[in-house]
Design a protein around this nucleic acid. Sequence first.
RNA 1: GCCGUUGUGGCUCAGUGGUAGAGCACUUCCUUGGUAAGGAAGAGGUCGUGAGUUCAAUUCUCAUCAACGGCUCCA
Length: 644
Amino acid sequence: MSIHITFPDGSVRPYEAGVSGWDIAKSLSEGLARQVLAAKVNGVVQDLSATITTDATICFLKWEDAEGQNTFWHSTAHLLAEAVEALFPDAQFWVGPALEKGFYYDIDLGDYKLTEDDLRKLEMKMSALAKNNAPFIRKAMQKEEAIAWFTEKGDRYKLDLLHGLEDGNISFYTQGNFTDLCRGPHIPHTGFIKAIQLTSIAGAYWKGDENNKQLTRIYGISFPAQKELDEYLALLEDAKKRDHRKLGKELELFAFSENVGLGLPLWLPKGAMLRERLQQFLQKAQMESGYLPVITPNIGHKNLYVTSGHYEKYGKDSFQPIKTPQEGEEFLLKPMNCPHHCEIYKTAPRSYKDLPLRLAEFGTVYRYEQHGELHGLTRVRGFTQDDAHLFCMPEQVKEEFKTVIDLVLYVFKSLGFTNYTAQISLRNKEDRSKYIGSEENWQRAEQAIIEAAAEKGLTTVTAYGEAAFYGPKLDFMVKDAIGRKWQLGTIQVDYNLPERFDLTYIGEDNARHRPVMIHRAPFGSMERFIAVLTEHCAGKFPLWLAPVQVKLLPISDRFLPYAQNVLLQLKKADIRVEMDDRNEKIGKKIRDAERMKIPCMLVIGEQEVAEGKAAVRRHGKGNMGARSVEEIIAGLRQEVEENQ
RNA sequence: GCCGUUGUGGCUCAGUGGUAGAGCACUUCCUUGGUAAGGAAGAGGUCGUGAGUUCAAUUCUCAUCAACGGCUCCA
């Protein structure tokens, strides 16, 4: 019997039923057959050796395809397991999936502690095994048979895995001496794997539960050619240079001190300047959108958080209350601004005419983060939220929510973030024990978010289990230099706190009604935002944000008096300017200013003094020629206004 | 909190069972130099902290603290 295979370009060719993907690839070209890793048949990725019995569309996956890489790395994980089993016969295996970049395998090595040396040995073993060109052979198995196989092997992890699988849907893969329970698919044989690097060892709780045993996780990456591994390593090097922790030190933005405490950043003058520019930028936008600034204290009575529900939820695992010496009254370091803002709402009777009431505060909060979680400025124990709470009538929620989306997108656009993900964070589907509030309110809130996002045309992903304990969120996620994802902006609908604080407003009908609260923070936290922004622009902040916008570079101290004069003029024009009056050559001064990524340098020498000018040099661009000081000021001002 | 790695002057890093070195930065002097490092001299560290082994520890062992890579967590 003959079947019709449709190719991506739309062409159709006849084949015998039962033909394999590989046969088809070979029929097209030998070159293709040498490169192809897997086949996507009717949209499903499968082994090349799998046969095709009916009409189908086919697409060959090569290294260049994301799904091809995925398969490649998954197969490498099996190769790793084979090497581990060869070197550590008692090892028991859990799972070994592919990642966005690379793969890992979780392994129980008993009490053995894996070392870096072991990784090198494993790499060598893997390379040796790969050279055997061992095919990945699939074998379907009955559940009973599979259980018997692993029981005999004494493999409790795989048995656990098996129990969750449906009979009739179980397959094994064997390459060389290693057989693993696996859904597949895999690349044709190990010979494709030419370059391997095992990158790190880590502990990982079995099934991600910290009550379970910790397995040894081996991370690695592999490529079809050494050249590509080298390129990848070079890319990693480059990413390291953008790391905000490194740049923060180099550009003197922030620092940490053990004497101050873990996760408590110290903002240095340059970092503080940057942060203030950002705050002013947002404050301006918020004033235009009808926000009202408020200020609340850094501590609050424990009862405030008992009322809000935060105490019950986080009290034990957070900084413990501080007490007044006489009365023994308990106060908490402010972990959230919302309860304070609720109290501000309650200071006066509110009419529907007052709503929406938008209270904004750059509020500094303190949260006890686990030691191992602290990370530069992205995860700290004291940070400042660009927080605001919008109190509105239920019928205003969606409109208000949409306005906030606009604000967040405006912020992102102004700062050059184009590569973000909008994530609708909803409750965990199975486990609802950690959430508070009525089912009805949750559904209304979820509905409001989903609709608002859709009406704004946002492309969103939905993440279950990522909601806050009191309500669903719309989170804006951005990746850092090393590819880690961070939540920046967030918008949350909250029906819960207004109830807990018994917030009301008088409606048109002269009756009391319950307002709805929207929490929102476009930056999220100033700390995290600046971290991600720093990595995003590799420390080259735009002129309007740069802590030092202009550096004056007099060629010799003969020109200092003139340069002093220029310095004064620029300062009077509100330009953030410094002068390098060191006894150094101009080349050295330029080098240092360039390394500090200062956007604009003004070189002043004999020529400039004579003409009443300064020679403009822009960061990374070189000499732009001499201009009068007035002209320079006007140009800088214009650039600041245009880009802000 | 858990697993693993690391911890040497302000920064980046070398090094040794017999109480330490380089480059940059810093200070002083010389130099007054035109678009990414001018020269010389000098100062600066009880080698994260505590205990143990040893005649002797920065070097070995243990503990502890912190940073880093993960896991778990994240109002």
